[in-house]
Design a protein around this nucleic acid. Sequence first.
DNA 1: CTGGTTTATGCATACGTTTCCAGATCGGGC
DNA 2: GCCCGATCTGGAAACGTATGCATAAACCAG
Lengths: 341, 341
Amino acid sequence: MRKLSIKDIAAAAGVSHSTVSRALRGSPLLKPETVARIRQIAQEKGYTASAVARSLVTRRTQTIGVVVTTIADPFVAEVVGGIEEAANDRGYSVFLANSNAQPEREMKVVQSFAERRVDGIIVTSSRVGALYTPMLSNMKVPIVLINNQHPGEFVHSVMIANLEASRQAVQHLIALGHRRIGYLGDRFGYQSDTERFAGYREALDCAGLPFQPELVAHGDGRPEGGWAAMQKLLALPERPTAVFCYNDMSALGALRAVREAGLRVPQDISLVGFDDLFVAQFTDPPLTTVRQPKAQMGRLAMETLFELLEGAQAAQLLRVPGELILRQSTAPLAGHDRAAA
Amino acid sequence: MRKLSIKDIAAAAGVSHSTVSRALRGSPLLKPETVARIRQIAQEKGYTASAVARSLVTRRTQTIGVVVTTIADPFVAEVVGGIEEAANDRGYSVFLANSNAQPEREMKVVQSFAERRVDGIIVTSSRVGALYTPMLSNMKVPIVLINNQHPGEFVHSVMIANLEASRQAVQHLIALGHRRIGYLGDRFGYQSDTERFAGYREALDCAGLPFQPELVAHGDGRPEGGWAAMQKLLALPERPTAVFCYNDMSALGALRAVREAGLRVPQDISLVGFDDLFVAQFTDPPLTTVRQPKAQMGRLAMETLFELLEGAQAAQLLRVPGELILRQSTAPLAGHDRAAA
DNA sequence: CTGGTTTATGCATACGTTTCCAGATCGGGC
DNA sequence: GCCCGATCTGGAAACGTATGCATAAACCAG
């Protein structure tokens, strides 16, 4: 038994297939009773319209492609949740594809999106650099990047306000009396690392604290790298009393390194993360961190895409503020009277 | 400038559009040099075939729909990662949709999948019950369920071997000398809860331990519910010395409740979870739990779907084993000599 | 009753592919 | 030189929908 088409139900209703098409789309040209009758019949027969045939003629698929490094990353998953929700609200479906941070794979999935004629594309935390953009921009669909890791002005993007957020985080440490504050960054030179580092520097400058290069260490954005980087900082002749970590994943590793060294957080060392992953609430101690409004960033990206699809102007770059979440991994410097800070 | 079609490049090559179609698909009918020439031209002109037009005639979209409760759930995200990977390996794209555990929304997205003519559907942790299946089965596409929460034989599914895994987890506690072992379950009566509870009972029976109803409490599968349920258990005149939690999320709440009661895990109470979420490695103490091979379950579901798509028989029910991961939230019963167990 | 509007419907075409069938070209055996 | 088969290519129809245009029916004013 073939899937039924508009013609089958046209035959059943004794009208032309154009009439059926109009009835189902709710055209005002038709007599209301005709519309009702046809819909009734379609319903009874269990007819479901073919979006693919529709797309062929309308040249719109009501579909967007989302490429992520890996959906298993909790940060990414929440962003995608926001995207999907916003898309679904407007009748769009989303294609999801993992790039696994491999440029060639990212190209491949974007190619596949092009063949599927998605109306737009959202890319999160792309690590694909300059070679990337020409390809993206010569396909005719609008593209929005979320927390893009390589600077570039040509496309639309929504990003966390890295500099302000990290400045605020470090200022929090300074307010607690800390003077030797480490920065645990990412060794790959991504934009978010660069910007967060800049915020760290700014906070030091504002407080008149000297920048000490030996207090900077680089991980890989994951617990393992954070662990190794933290060990270096702990091995310093004069170790930092507080460390601002590039992201929560690094902070997890850092936390472990501190504990393994027989020290306590926050009594011996204060730790701040970035992202506010779910896990941050459940570490020991719960992690002070900068919250990124992940789902909202997803929604925002989707809404930007909608504006673009409607031919409207859209902001080239949307910066959303982070929020410092105070938990128990930060404490006043031992022997420091907070009021005196 | 319109997107170019097969005809545009046919004109450029001085052949018919049928020939172009064959060249691009790699038909053996064509002279190899013709194929090469046409591909060359298509390449130069930046042609990308339209999957939607193709789908219309082939009646295959090379597309599958995945419906999840919410992609923000880390468990789900990993499963979806496995699905996407397996799909992508074979040239399939995946539509992702959140149901937010609302039946009507789940219906809606499945409807939308039907319109898009997906070749198959995968549903994870569906909480939609019986009313659901007729609809699913009368659309003609194959469906596979992952960890379905309502029993039913009509469709294909892959599930974790709940009973065996939970029996093993509880036996671990028994081996540690525990005798008063609590079960912290889910109050919604899902299949996974039922089965895990059965495993708990079996383990008690095997060890000749009495089942004590007061040692069973129900949460909601999330930290809040686990927290509340654990408080009840702690308030017992004679509290359990170990608790097996239905899932890691509940265990997180339980952990917090224990700590708030001024007790220590595992010295005062041993705790076991289920799922092995990422967070389980980073709690204090790290959580002993049953690992579900999430990505693999996703792959398996996808592969089952492929078999179905090829018209092959496929197992109605695939059970994958869990794996007990020993961490630091379980310890021998205080004053108990393990060797004597 | 007639002619001109308005209203409701049907016809035909287009969207961009795939694929069946027919036709053209070519080489070779007789 | 002719015919046959093999090899390659083109023509045309089909997939299921949307929509511009033509047309039929109904209405109303004169």
